[in-house]
């Protein structure tokens, strides 16, 4: 599986409150949440983002609360993958469980710049920076995590595996 898109680049400790502010948690409708995704850190994000685009950030992405609304909002906004050097662990789980692909890659997180065009191969873990003509390597997803993502999250995965 391959995805290609333009990069939105952020720094360290992007927390769940900036990913989806608590004031919008009175709904769990993905499209409604997507309208406010990243609003407190990048207010035009929802307007600019296009299907397939990619978020790249530095360390401890998704720290803060355990709200599953955070990965849901990112996914519903059209983002096809998040790349960071590290994740807060509950976000990490929640991302896979809600069907949002995320990769860990220190080199990619250091070198990729805002607006770069990037292509990701989920099978091999290869991250190609088309703009700078560089290639970085993340660990590919193991087979069953890929299955969870392919099933669009854990609920559907379990449904088809009961």
């Amino acid at each position: 599986m391959i995805t290609k898109g333009k990069v939105f680049k952020y720094g360290n400790n992007v927390d769940t409150d900036v990913i989806i502010p608590a004031r919008y948690l009175n709904t769990s409708d993905p499209d409604e949440l997507a309208k406010h995704c990243m609003e407190d850190i990048d207010k035009d994000f929802a307007k600019k983002v296009q299907e397939g685009d990619i978020i790249v950030a530095n360390k401890n992405f998704g720290c803060g609360s355990s709200r599953e609304h955070a990965p849901i909002a990112i996914k519903a906004s059209g983002i096809s993958c998040v790349i960071a050097s590290t994740y807060a662990r509950i976000f990490y789980r929640n991302a896979f469980n809600t069907g949002l692909p995320i990769l860990e890659c220190q080199e990619a997180s250091e070198k990729i710049k805002n607006g770069d065009e990037v292509e990701i191969n989920f099978i091999t873990g290869e991250i190609k920076n088309i703009t700078s003509n560089e290639v970085y390597h993340a660990q590919p997803f193991p087979e069953f995590i890929q299955k969870v993502i392919d099933s669009d999250g854990l609920v559907n995965y379990v449904k088809s595996n009961l």
């Binding site: 599953e68 509950i90 789980r93 069953f144 999250g153 854990l154 609920v155 379990v158």
Partner: peptide, 17 residues
């Protein structure tokens, strides 16, 4: 510790990733 979706899947299948 895990989230509620993990708990649901754990109750259903007895497994977690």
């Amino acid at each position: 510790g895990i989230g509620s979706t993990d708990m649901a899947a754990g109750m259903a299948r007895g497994k977690a990733w």
